[in-house]
Design a protein around this nucleic acid. Sequence first.
RNA 1: GGGGACGUAGUUCAGCUGGUUAGAACGCAUGCCUGUCACGCAUGAGGUCGCGGGUUCGAGCCCCGUCGUCCCCGCCA
Length: 599
Amino acid sequence: MALDLLGERQRTHYCGELRESHQGQTVFLAGWVARRRDLGSLVFLDLRDHTGVTQIVCNLEISPEAHEKAEQVRPEYVVGVEGEVVLRDPATVNPQIPTGKVEVQARKLLLLNESRTPPFPIEDEGRMAEETRLRYRYLDLRRSRMQQNIRLRHRASLTVREVLSRHRFVEIETPFLTRSTPEGARDYLVPSRVHHGHFYALPQSPQLFKQILMIGGFDRYFQIVRCFRDEDLRADRQPEFTQIDIEMAFPQRSVLFAIIEELMASLFALVDVQVSRPFPILSYDEAMERYGSDKPHTEFGLEWKRVNLPEGAQEKVRVSCPLKALRVPGWASTNRSQIDKLQETAQAAGADWFSAIKMSGAEPQSSLVKALGEDAVRQLASAAGAQPGDLVILLGLKPGQSAQGPQHRLDEASSEVRLELARKLDLLKSGGWHFLWVVDFPMFDYDDKENRFVAMHHPFTSPREEDLGMLETDPGGVKARAYDLVLNGSEIGGGSIRIHRPDIQRRVFSALGMTPEKARERFGFFLDALEYGTPPHGGIALGFDRIVGLMAGESNIREVIAFPKTASAVDVMCDAPSTVEPEQLEELGLEIKESPVEG
RNA sequence: GGGGACGUAGUUCAGCUGGUUAGAACGCAUGCCUGUCACGCAUGAGGUCGCGGGUUCGAGCCCCGUCGUCCCCGCCA
């Protein structure tokens, strides 16, 4: 097929722009053919770009050349059209598209490029196998959903730069080829050609660099930066993802929170969401107690309370006190199978003991009545705040399970039960935007497998000043000056006030079971830097993909990433990862260990 | 590493209790058509039922294994 050259022609309008006011103008449009409707000596083309669609008429009587070419055109061919904007006959107006009152009468049709038949329709927004979409991502990107999402992402990054620059933050790039830090996530490694046996690591986050920038006198830093973690994927996790990384010197938590809240308000204004400020602040302990989660969805009530079995009842029921109790308003009429499902959920998530009380009518209904008597059960229910017509759910642990681990299991179960109830009661759809700060995280988590404390956030997080004395005596009780930002039950950011004093940094390393030698080996450069006048500093990292995903109403961050990877970390479009030439391995001093052949 | 769902035409999917030649819609090709806009009409092409093995007279369907995709747990300082 003979193709035409674009030559000197320039697009005068986008395909979604023409209106009645353009009547009579000669225009030049360019784009992709979305559809062709061939009526013989009259051919209609729907010409598409990211702004919309304009109908092109190719009439044999008006331009035989244009009509001839229109006959050859197929979907996704790239064409340019020169012609006149004409009003459509009122009977043929298409009210479904913004350009529906006009059409372009083609004088010249330029065939700029052909296209193979696409494997899936571009116009149809129907569901499509993920793998097919990713394999032909260039076609998927043409679809309006991806056009909107990726362009929203662009506007979001502009907003980030605008808001933070206004607050005198400076965008500074940090290295991608850096040093492996064994704590935390698995690193992606890059072998060095110059130094055989040595590896760079791609950063899990620019944590140490941004702290060093504080030491270096850039008192307010930010970066929209790619981070890499070689861990298993999820709907909200990609092996490479983007953070809005922020750090400031001489920080007051309240100042940082206000800036981040302003940033969030500006971002969500892009999708016409008004964010109410300031965001509520909840301590970690309270979040776990009331919601069983450190990232609670606070849109709906359903809060847990601690209740104790009445005196004398403890011997009759094999459960440790206090219990966790949840009042479900007006749900006394629910059926057995619903309660059984909740019990299943609770026990799968780690609760040892489950019971329910129906407050229907005068007498409470519960399997506990037999063991405890009506009065005791009524007492329990009223401790949980139950009113007539309510259901009360009780969760507990086996007797003697008061340690941190089992309590954590109980919290986990209470969170799962709560979320399942919210789904059953259809409480998740109100469309609200509930931001929340969760603060005062524990400094350390006990790792049962490694038999030592590990940093809950990271080892550069400052303990609360009032807890410093407990670093050596009761590490489990030390709270960190760390905070997470939560939106509708999903964690969209986290940060902390950092340690700026070398003596405290040494004590934290030691609490983590790291010898001074080991600390020096891993973080020597950073410990050195800390010795040279480090200002108090702190910051936060926000999950940019997650935020844009929420703004776009997407439940999977792949929908806001142009070229994402599958759940097994494969790029199916370019087929990465791949094997490499033996010469490349040779140059790097690497040898591949063959995987053992299965007998 | 573990659990669940899925894998049939280019795409989305149907395919009963294992039984003749595996179907539909959309898309695609060819022809006709001057007011269509999900154009219409006519004709036609298009299948390694993911892959390998097994059971059976006979497997898209049953069994075992394997690969891939999605979701979840573990993991993600």
